[in-house]
């Protein structure tokens, strides 16, 4: 099995996909860093102070003002209220929710890239892992060796998991390295609050705990990795089922984007919570944001994702070992 994985890695590296992905992440991180830097600057200019308490106070006022507007929808109102209560809680406990520094940047970057950007990068690798062998025709050479088909596929899947881990690591390293130049590399120990739960009556703060930021980020990474593996496995399955890489990518892309859209509008369509794509924003649960559909929790979302993962893996293996190759 070792040798087979070595083979897959050799092919992956020769295609230089990982380099392209690293370059894309690098460019994006630079953009985000600059954007955030600008944002901090304008805020300070507007308020004439760099004291975070004043800034947070201003944010709370802004949010309250928006809440009074009658034109905003019920769901959006609920989310704003949650945010408002959280901001108030941070202020009351004298904790800066966005302590400047590379670690905070990593946290924000991960939170924003978990449902679309990183899954997209993973998809680039996963969706042609099997279908490219078909379009190249090399599948015929690959499957006429004294190696059982399930072993061939398993070696590809292990390679995928390694590549995903590498992508997540690259995202972490690049965002730390690049943003640190602007925001400084310190701030791992800053406290951050987690454990907010959103209930019918509003924000429940009874189980809120304060964590050092590095622990929080570690948890973020775990969740990001999980999401990446699930999305990767789904694209992998499509890559087995559909011979055209482009079609597989298209389907995956459509479902990821529809997930991002659905999350904002499905609060009244309850059964949508079983779709994998509305369950991707796992880091929001740590942060304590309101879930897209009432009643969704971290463990619920993880369970849904794992069920999708298991089914995708099973379908991929069954199909690959049974299929006639023409």
């Amino acid at each position: 099995m070792n040798k087979l994985v070595q083979n897959e890695m050799m092919k992956l590296m020769a295609k230089k996909r990982l380099l392209v992905i690293a370059a894309i992440i690098g460019v994006l991180v630079i953009l985000f860093t600059y954007a955030q830097y600008k944002q901090v600057q304008t805020q300070q200019e507007k308020l004439g102070t760099s004291d975070w308490r004043t800034i947070l106070q201003q944010q709370i006022i802004d949010t309250t003002n928006r809440l009074t507007s009658s034109r905003i929808s019920e769901e959006w109102k609920k989310q704003l209220q949650t945010t408002l209560q959280q901001e108030q809680y941070y202020l009351d406990h004298n904790i800066n929710p966005s302590e400047p520094g590379a670690p905070t940047f990593i946290r924000i970057f991960l939170e924003n890239s978990i449902d679309l950007f990183l899954p997209l990068m993973v998809m680039v690798i996963a969706s042609d892992l099997v279908s490219s062998e078909h379009s190249l025709g090399s599948i015929k050479l690959l499957l006429t060796r004294p190696v059982k088909r399930w072993r061939v596929l398993l070696s590809k899947y292990i390679t995928l998991c390694l590549a995903i881990s590498l992508i997540v690591a690259i995202a972490g390293i690049l965002s730390y390295g690049i943003s640190g130049i602007v925001f400084g590399y310190r701030g791992w120990g800053t406290p951050i609050l987690t454990g907010f739960s959103v209930t019918d009556t509003g924000l429940n703060t009874s189980s809120v705990r304060s964590l050092p930021l590095w622990q929080f980020i570690l948890m973020d990474f775990g969740l990001v990795w999980l999401v990446a593996i699930v999305v990767g496995t789904l694209s992998f399955m499509l890559s087995v089922l559909i011979r055209s890489t482009a079609a597989g990518m298209g389907i995956m892309l459509a479902s990821l984007i529809s997930g991002a859209i659905l999350s904002n509008m499905v609060s009244s369509w309850k059964s949508a919570k079983y779709l994998f794509m509305v369950n991707l924003r796992l880091t929001d649960y740590l942060k304590g944001a309101a879930p897209p559909i009432e009643g969704m929790t971290l463990s619920f979302s993880i369970t849904v994702l794992l069920v999708w993962w298991a089914i995708a893996l099973m379908v991929a293996f069954l199909s690959f070992t049974q299929k006639d190759i023409y």
Partner: peptide, 30 residues
Amino acid sequence: IKNLGCIVENPELYPYLSGWDNLLHFVRML
């Protein structure tokens, strides 16, 4: 299959690998 060698239609080897790496790839499967 151990006793069989074959080319089905054209030999579609990996164009982005060298000839040696292609052979190495298949040796690792034996």
